[in-house]
């Protein structure tokens, strides 16, 4: 059947997407987006495995049977770009929280209530 690593990847992606669909707080949505990125990176790394292989580094190497190094080089870029996206999203949420008179919905402006930290009410 399916190996255990692919099941973990499926669960990470589904949990991340369900977090984006069902949560209301901004910080929880950002954490869920981060979980989707982690699941995709895990899947990309697990594609290059070779049975009985060691890490592709020749310093004090034990054997010469190595796993493939190309997916590892690709997810370095992916991790850094996910980090940049998360940093931008977090600072946008700080901006939303600090300037409340910018993002009031029209219904709450008529009632005179302050906008809360959730995205929909």
């Amino acid at each position: 059947m399916i190996s255990l690593i692919f099941l973990t990847t499926i669960f990470l992606i589904v949990i991340g997407i369900s977090g984006v669909l069902f949560q209301r707080n901004f910080i929880k949505i950002i954490i869920a987006i981060n979980i989707i990125g982690d699941g995709v990176n895990l899947f990309l790394i697990s594609l290059g495995y070779r049975e009985g292989g060691i890490a592709p580094i020749f310093t004090n190497a034990v054997s010469l049977n190595m796993v493939s190094p190309t997916p590892q080089a690709l997810i370095l870029t992916s991790i850094v770009i996910n980090l940049a996206i998360t940093a931008l999203l977090l600072s946008l949420s700080v901006l939303i929280h600090s300037s409340e008179n910018l993002v009031n919905s029209k219904k709450e402006q008529d009632e005179g209530k302050p906008a809360s930290h959730n995205s929909k009410n």
Binding site: P56, I57, F58, P69, A73, I81, L83
Partner: peptide, 23 residues
């Protein structure tokens, strides 16, 4: 000695340049 470092910084250094600019 590090094959991954030689891929990231020598064989595919253009992706690293793009990633530094994105950051």
């Amino acid at each position: 000695n590090n094959v991954v470092a030689s891929i990231v910084f020598d064989y595919r250094a253009l992706d690293t340049l793009g990633e530094a600019v994105v950051l």
